[in-house]
């Protein structure tokens, strides 16, 4: 240190040593945080490597076009892939309108009342309820009480309940991001509440809403526990043709193969995971694209 100091020399040396130690601690702390952060990146790398090195050689057209089988060479994900597509489409049809309209209510219509507060708190807490509890709800209400059995519809309704809180929360955020000056301007020229929402708020908020919906749906695609609860883990060697048909889904098929003791089936599971991750990646890419388009405007 070269700054002038009127302290005696030894005191200055002690202070300098102390400062050096503090800098060392600070440096070590930063590096420790960095190392731990990088460890998360490394773990992701290992996980992906593990999946790809195990599964990639099973991944071919035959795998995509075959039904599950006791024989490893003949087994495939056809019914699971179609089941997942059915499931996610129906889930989107059910949850998107309900979630978005619910968010519109909470952001644009709801009075500041006790009931509104209860709804808000309730949604925040529902988002943290374990997915398996939704599975039990689906089992008791949709499968048994409503008699939908193990249908795609029962699965989609269960999944819809599961992701509704996520959709509502993200749609609310997107709606809230619309500047209130737009609303005031529209109200000032005599527009009704619904006209303001439809003509001004929704178009502005749409990219944000869609991004949130897609991310919520990709959560539904990966969920396994609720589907097991409603009994979707069965041998299904056909493609659902309507909402009342039985179905299987990718994560269910992966679970099935993983839980078998034979290593070959584990490799099939890895191949199934690659297909599942590919579906998720596609959906996320769409979400990123929509977000990008939305922010560019």
């Amino acid at each position: 240190m070269t700054l002038a100091n009127d302290n005696p020399a030894n005191q200055q040396a002690a202070a300098a040593a102390r400062l050096k130690r503090r800098h060392l601690v600070s440096w070590a702390f930063e590096k420790a945080c960095l190392t731990l952060t990088l460890s998360a990146v490394v773990v992701l790398g290992i996980l992906l490597w593990q999946v790809f090195s195990d599964g990639i050689h099973w991944l071919d057209l035959q795998f995509l076009q075959s039904f599950p089988s006791r024989f490893v060479e003949k087994a495939g994900v056809k019914s699971a892939l179609y089941g997942t597509l059915w499931l996610v489409s129906l889930t989107a049809l059910i949850s998107l309108p309900i979630g978005v309209l619910g968010a519109i209510y909470l952001e644009e219509y709801a009075p500041t009342s006790r009931l509104t507060r209860i709804i808000e708190i309730n949604i925040a807490n529902l988002a943290g309820v374990p997915s398996i509890v939704y599975g039990i709800l689906g089992l008791a209400i949709f499968v048994r009480f409503m008699g939908l059995e193990r249908s795609v519809l029962a699965g989609a309704m269960t999944m819809s309940l599961l992701i509704l809180p996520v959709i509502v929360i993200s749609a609310k955020e997107a709606i809230r991001a619309v500047p209130s000056s737009i609303r005031l301007a529209a109200f000032a020229v005599g527009a009704t509440q619904w006209q303001v929402v439809r003509a001004h708020v929704l178009p502005e908020a749409l990219p944000g809403i869609l991004t949130g919906v897609i991310l919520a749906l990709s959560r539904a695609i990966g969920e396994t526990a609720p589907l097991i609860m409603i009994g979707a883990l069965t041998y299904v060697a056909f493609i659902p043709e309507g909402p009342m048909d039985e179905f299987t889904a990718l994560p269910i098929q992966i679970f099935n193969w993983t839980s078998r003791p034979q290593a070959e089936f584990h490799e099939l599971a890895a191949a199934g995971i690659i297909v599942l991750l590919a579906v998720l990646l596609t959906m996320n890419a769409v979400a990123v694209y929509i977000r990008y388009r939305g922010t560019r405007r």
């Binding site: 290992i46 593990q50 999946v51």
Partner: peptide, 23 residues
């Protein structure tokens, strides 16, 4: 780093089960 964390968060739980068992 943020996207890496988002990917980790987005990986289905059944995949983590597979990872636990096989790695």
């Amino acid at each position: 780093i943020k996207p890496v964390l988002e990917v980790l968060a987005g990986i289905p739980t059944v995949v983590y089960g597979y990872f636990a068992l096989t790695f």
